[in-house]
Amino acid sequence: MLTKSRLIQLVIMLSLLIGLFIWRTIELSPVIEKNQEESVQSDKVEEVLCDFSEPCVFNSLWGAFSLSVEGGKIIPEQWFHLTLESKVENWQVSSAKIIGKTMFMGKIPIKFTEATNIAGKQQSTGKSMLGVCTEDKMLWRLDIVVEVNGQPVNLYYDFLIVK
């Protein structure tokens, strides 16, 4: 049975919960706005598939990074050579890996050379190999993290391998 004291207790608890909800919402608003501003300023993932018949370009806040494959094609179970280049100065590849997007086949690490200046552009090269997938088509992502003046920049290159 709902007595007068129980009703008062329920109203007090409801008021307390509503007050805490409003206080937490107001307190978190600057953090949420700051995170949204940072995500707007971060590199946008371009949903463009690279076919590597010509260099694939990723535009970051620091500038454009161009990735090319020697021979213009990636064939499973064969070594392929990658070249990452940019007019941006003072950058180095800190990590790189290939990840299956349509099917998880592990993370394939790639070691890139130290970036060197060649004809006004900085260039770094790497070498890798992909396994054969059971699917006829496999979507992959090459995820490269470069450091530009000590700041990490994520570069994403999506590509499709067809048997």
Results as ranks from 00 to 15, higher is better:
Met129Phe: 03
Leu61Ile: 09
Ser86Leu: 05
Thr3Leu: 05
Lys4Gly: 10
Pro30Thr: 05
Glu70Tyr: 06
Thr116Gly: 05
Val93Thr: 08
Gln78Phe: 04
Lys163Gly: 00
Met105Gln: 08
Glu135Asn: 04
Lys127Leu: 11
Leu14Ile: 03
Ile18Trp: 07
Met1Ala: 15
Thr125Tyr: 12
Lys163Tyr: 08
Ile8Val: 09
Glu135Arg: 02
Asn149Asp: 11
Leu61Pro: 03
Glu89Phe: 06
Lys127Phe: 09
Thr116Glu: 06
Ile8Leu: 12
Thr134Asn: 11
Val11Glu: 07
Pro55Asp: 01
Glu38Gln: 15
Gly63Tyr: 02
Val31Asp: 09
Leu14Cys: 10
Gln41Lys: 15
Ser94Ala: 10
Gly150Lys: 11
Phe21Glu: 12
Val93Met: 03
Ile8Asp: 02
Glu114Asp: 13
Gly150Trp: 11
Ile22Val: 10
Phe104Thr: 06
Gly72Leu: 03
Asp43Arg: 12
Arg24Ser: 09
Glu89Pro: 10
Pro55Cys: 02
Phe21Lys: 07
Ser94Ile: 14
Glu147Lys: 13
Phe80Asn: 03
Met138Gln: 03
Leu155Met: 13
Asp43Gln: 14
Trp91Thr: 00
Asn154Gln: 11
Leu130Ser: 00
Ala119Trp: 04
Leu67Gly: 07
Phe159Trp: 03
Thr3Phe: 08
Ala64Cys: 10
Leu82Phe: 03
Asp136Ala: 14
Gly131Lys: 03
Lys34Cys: 06
Ser53Pro: 05
Val146Asn: 12
Pro152Phe: 09
Phe112Met: 03
Gly72Val: 06
Ala119Thr: 01
Arg6Tyr: 14
Ala115Phe: 05
Ser5Cys: 08
Asp43Tyr: 10
Lys107Ala: 14
Ser124Gly: 08
Tyr156Thr: 10
Lys111Asn: 09
Phe58His: 12
Ala64Ser: 14
Asn117Ser: 07
Val153Trp: 02
Met138Pro: 01
Met129Tyr: 02
Val31Ile: 08
Glu38Lys: 15
Glu33Cys: 03
Glu46Phe: 09
